[in-house]
Amino acid sequence: MNTVTRRVVLTFPANLVEDTAIYHLIKDYDLVVNILRAKIIPKEIGRIVLELRGKIDNIKKGVSYLESKGIEVKPLAQDIYLNEDKCVSCGMCLAVCHQKALSLNKNTWKIEFNRDDCILCEQCVSVCPLKVIQVTF
């Protein structure tokens, strides 16, 4: 079975912030886990952007395990939004997008956003002069 990579956002309820779920993903489900971003404060809702690599069945089982514990798992792309109608494609966001999720189409000179490459670092959100990129992380 092929190895696949999935990026997900985990939302931990306040009572699970100190849980050891990530350990079990590695140990019990044989997943390669890469934490791309995390916001964890004791007794508050925590969020982690994870890259999971492993067999697709193991990823599915690992995600079910997380959900059974009360941890919400969502695909990464749902948390960021570029308002293309209001974007003027000035290019200021390109300077801070190290993942190259934001890029300039050299035919149209329009900014394009590839959600799959975004790790929700949010640097573009404050740099955008028109505030047309919104993140709900």
Partner: peptide
Amino acid sequence: NPVSSLFM
């Protein structure tokens, strides 16, 4: 990176 829009 540009800071003015060629698209516009």
